[in-house]
């Protein structure tokens, strides 16, 4: 599979791009020209220059530095959300699909209820309830999306649980947990990988939308959605503020989408055609 992956140029290219962006975010203190939180109110809305390559915002902070530091909350929060969602969803899905019986029934009923709610509204409701804080946003997102993953994983587990090699493994006397981890998990993981990379784009857009509305990341954290919120307030006087964060979001999400598509091609050639 690794060979197929390396052969698919798109997959390699996109993974590389995502990796580079993540690295830039990680090494932000080294790469960013200025402190993203340093205000210099007399120098607001400065033009592009060598010192401030993307100019400054309404408080005189360097836009490029904020963009670079912004990779951390934007990408980081989305990744955290994905881990939580997949973790919870996978756990529930495994439980339901593997053990069946009443565990399955209960979990699936809960999944049905969760899925019957429009996700956007639920996120708002949870944020409204728990207060406007980025942790609540992540919690809300995990709370919404886990059901979908649980259902997917359950379907996958159901497909594989009665395969021969699982039966043999059980015959030999291996523990259930061993079977789960060593046999089932790898079979599911390829589908999981595709879903995850497509969904992380959704998570990024969702978190940035909430930050844009003022419900997610709070000032002065330079998350890209929050930066667009600030840009909206100066749309008439300084429209250039909304270009950089927007393009950055589009590039990042497109990279993940392309990566997901390419992974799907790699892992299941039937779907590609």
């Amino acid at each position: 599979m690794l060979k197929k992956f390396l052969e698919n140029k798109m997959a390699v290219a996109m993974t590389g791009l995502v990796f580079i962006i993540a690295l830039i975010g990680l090494f932000a203190p080294v790469l960013a020209p200025h402190d993203p939180y340093a205000t210099n109110i007399m120098n607001k809305f400065a033009k592009f220059s060598m010192d401030y390559p993307l100019g400054t915002d309404h408080l005189g902070r360097c836009v490029l530095s904020r963009m670079i530091y912004g990779i951390r909350p934007t990408l980081g929060l989305a990744t955290l959300t994905m881990f939580g969602t997949i973790g919870l969803g996978a756990f529930m899905g495994f439980m339901a699909g593997y053990f069946r019986g009443w565990i399955d029934e209960i979990i699936m009923r809960v999944v049905d209820v969760m899925l019957s709610f429009p996700s956007q509204i639920m996120v708002f409701a949870v944020v409204a309830l728990l207060g406007i804080d980025v942790r609540n946003v992540i919690l809300a997102n995990v709370f919404i999306k886990w059901a979908w993953y649980a259902r997917m994983i359950r379907a996958g587990v159901l497909k594989y649980r009665d395969k021969n090699y699982i039966q043999f493994s059980r015959c030999v006397g291996n523990k259930e947990s061993f079977i789960l981890l060593r046999h089932l998990l790898p079979s599911i993981s390829s589908e999981l990988a595709v879903l995850a990379s497509l969904d992380i784009g959704w998570a990024i857009i969702n978190i940035s939308t909430l930050s844009f509305l003022g419900l997610g990341v709070q000032a002065p954290v330079p998350e890209w959605g929050a930066m667009l919120n600030e840009a909206k307030n100066v749309l008439t006087t300084n429209p250039v503020q909304m270009i950089a964060p927007g393009i950055a979001i589009v590039v990042l999400v497109t990279a993940f989408n392309l990566l997901g598509d390419a992974l799907r091609d790699v892992l299941d050639p039937k779907e590609a055609s």
């Binding site: 939180y37 000032a219 002065p220 307030n233």
Partner: peptide, 24 residues
């Protein structure tokens, strides 16, 4: 329209003397 900007400015200024200001 202006209180937010002033709050953000104060947030970063007070950080310089070691005060952690959370604005709401």
């Amino acid at each position: 329209v202006t209180e937010k900007s002033i709050s953000e400015y104060l947030q970063s200024e007070y950080a310089k003397i070691g005060v952690n200001l959370k604005i709401e």
